[in-house]
Design a protein around this nucleic acid. Structure first.
Length: 598
RNA sequence: GGGGGUGUAGCUCAAUUGGUUAGAGCGCCAGCCUGUCACGCUGGAGGUUACGGGUUCAAGUCCCGCCACUCUCGCCA
């Protein structure tokens, strides 16, 4: 007989009745009836009920039977009497009558319940992550994560992609997020950087002749956390394809994402190809470059209709070059006054001066602003919004950028409050045609996204078009309002690179010195190539229907980028600093080194 | 760095307008119980109301500060 077990806790059925078995696992719960005692023994695979007769000598070891201790039982599998069969358990038809017991690992009193699904302070969960991970919901998420990643590898490999590891210790790249740095012992004063993504390596692999690359790639960015953004590190299904167009990348990703989402979720998923929305249209209609298409509301432009109206608040905004955005919401004219007041408050909370609205009730328009509008204007608005009795149109007037942003926020809020969002579907879209450049805070032309993206139209557009009108072969994939990834057709031409950087104010020497590897590689026969890198954690978050990304990461850091279980970041020994030629100069506020967490 | 929320027993929460000894469920400890499966029953222990000030006859409750966690803006090419 095996040292610890002949079966796991999820596999015994009536077929094993009569056999003597050995099981090891955690004590999930104890039910002591005095004359008979039941233990639910739990492992990764399931629960099995152990029955203990008080006559057994080990019955007296009761102090060792605290829940979450690990115990090994030898016993006989018996059928439960019909009334005692538990249909909720896979092993509910049988139980194991204990004949021998061995405590393998005792547990202290646990700080929060493992067997019961109750809320618990997250800091405590992180500190005792090993216990939290035993709990069903989190355990299940990590299992899902493992299966999804395994399936991603299968799908990618089947499509001819090769998984290739790229360095974790690399050089700092000049643009993008803040880097995590690692000091060099051998080169005093020099630093490695952890990669924010294997971007340059995968492009180098393309120039190295590997036709299709992928990697479940760790990425490190020293930026602040969000619900869908874990600080420190995250994973991407990173991929790159040689001699490929934007459509080739879309086709591969539509197949892979459709397969993953349909195999690992019961929700309805869009058929491929996924809808494609140009960036500018997304901003106009949804006020966002990551619209949640489950929300049926769209924004429209009503600027011209208010230009000459008597409603001075709006006409004034239009006269000063602003815009009026409108959202038509069907069937909500009957909402109580409070609904509209709350929407106005919401609009103000996101920076709006107000929120106008027109309600069509019983063939009449009801609104504080209706009296300022001519019958003709009202009809035109009605036509624009496609509205009728029982419907409402909301209006935001502001400078164009603000009106669009506020309108986007109002659209999302209306979708929530009117319960327009179907929680049982996944709606995908590609956002395409991102602008290559935008104006930065100082009004200078700057790359708006990836400086390595290929401008649409090539050298001709770079030379002849207004930089702000140049589009890039740059795209995002969005699911239910979550941005899963950005990607691009890359700029593989040294001449185009130099020109593209020139427009953003960087000379040739900058390209040569900041991106020496790519620049050099592209002068030795680079294949046109394109890629993308969907975020693995976010995909699993969506599949597992979790509200924050820490629920799908085994050992996440908290919002302040601390690992409360391991105590990272922590202090190090003076000799370690000496080896690295480092001297710590603390900010004034923290005279003492901060205590390590946990 | 800015804004919002939360912080009361090991855990989840309650405590009327500022007013008696800060309560409940779960957990823990002790006892009882032969068919439970979130077993049940009886009893018990457990509190610097995050922390530090202030107002008041009186503060969990009001004010100021501060810390922690979280959501968010900035940030994330």
């Amino acid at each position: 007989m095996h040292r610890y077990r002949t079966h796991n806790c999820g596999e015994l059925r009536d077929g094993q009745i009569g056999q003597t078995v050995k099981l090891s696992g955690w004590i999930n719960s104890v039910r002591d009836h005095g004359g008979i005692l039941f233990i639910d023994l739990r492992d990764h695979y399931g629960l099995t009920q152990i029955v203990i007769d008080p006559a057994q000598p080990f019955y007296k070891g009761v102090e060792h039977w605290r829940v979450e201790s690990t115990i090994c039982f030898v016993g006989k599998v018996v059928a439960r009497i019909p009334e005692a069969v538990n249909p909720k358990l896979a092993t509910g038809a049988i139980e194991v009558v204990a004949e021998e017991m061995e405590v393998l690992g005792e547990s202290l009193v646990i700080p929060f319940q493992v067997a019961k699904d109750e809320d618990c302070n997250e800091a405590l969960r992180l500190e005792y992550r090993f216990l939290d991970l035993r709990r069903q919901s989190l355990h299940k998420n990590i299992v899902l994560r493992s299966k999804v990643i395994a399936r991603m590898r299968e799908l990618m490999t089947a499509k001819g992609f090769m998984e290739i590891q790229t360095p974790i210790l690399t050089s700092s790249s000049p643009e993008g997020a803040r880097d995590y740095l690692v000091p060099s012992r051998i080169h005093p004063g020099k630093f490695y950087a952890l990669p924010q993504a294997p971007q340059q390596f995968k492009q180098l692999l393309m120039t190295s002749g590997f036709d299709r690359y992928f990697q479940i790639a760790p990425c490190f960015r020293d930026e602040d956390a969000r619900a869908d953004r874990s600080p420190g590190e995250f994973y991407q299904l990173d991929m790159e394809m040689a001699f490929a167009t934007q459509d080739d990348v879309f086709a591969v990703n539509e197949e892979v994402l459709h397969a993953i989402f349909s195999e690992f979720s019961d929700k309805m998923i869009d058929n491929t190809p996924f809808v494609r929305i140009p960036f500018r249209e997304a901003i106009e209609k949804y006020g966002s470059d990551k619209p949640d298409l489950r929300n049926p509301l769209i924004m429209q432009d009503a600027t011209e209709l208010f230009r000459d109206c008597d409603f001075k608040a709006f006409a004034g905004v239009v006269a000063s070059g602003g815009a009026v955005k409108t959202i038509a919401a069907k069937g909500c004219a009957g909402q109580p006054r409070k609904f509209f007041d709350d929407m106005i408050k919401f609009a103000q909370s996101v920076g709006s001066k107000g929120l106008g609205y027109l309600r069509w009730i019983d063939g009449e328009v009801q609104s504080p602003i209706a009296k300022f509008l001519s019958a003709e204007t009202l009809n035109q608005l009605k036509e624009l919004g496609g509205v009728g009795d029982g419907d409402v149109m909301f209006f935001i007037a502001d400078q164009k950028k603000e009106a669009t942003e506020i309108g986007g926020a109002v659209r999302t809020e209306l979708g929530k409050r009117l319960e327009l969002i179907d929680a049982n579907v996944f709606k995908f879209c590609w956002i395409v045609d991102f602008p290559m450049y935008e104006l930065d805070d100082e009004g200078k032309v700057a790359f708006s996204h990836n400086p390595f993206s290929m401008p649409q139209g090539g050298m001709d557009t770079l030379l002849n078009k207004d930089p702000l009108d140049i589009l890039a072969f740059q795209y995002d994939i969005v699911c239910n309002g979550t941005e899963l990834s950005s990607g691009a057709v890359r700029n593989h031409s040294p001449e185009l690179m130099i020109k593209a950087f020139d427009i953003a104010g960087y000379g040739k020497s900058v390209v040569e010195s900041k991106f020496p590897a790519l620049y050099r590689a592209f002068q030795y026969g680079a294949p046109p190539h394109a890629g993308i890198a969907p975020g693995v954690d976010r995909i699993i978050m969506l599949l597992a229907d979790q509200p924050n990304i820490r629920e799908v990461i085994a050992f996440p850091m908290n919002q302040k980028a601390q690992d409360l279980l391991m105590g990272a970041p922590g202090n190090v020994e003076p000799n370690q600093l000496r080896d690295l030629h480092l001297q710590v100069k603390l900010p004034k506020k923290a005279e003492q080194p901060t205590e390590s967490p946990a």
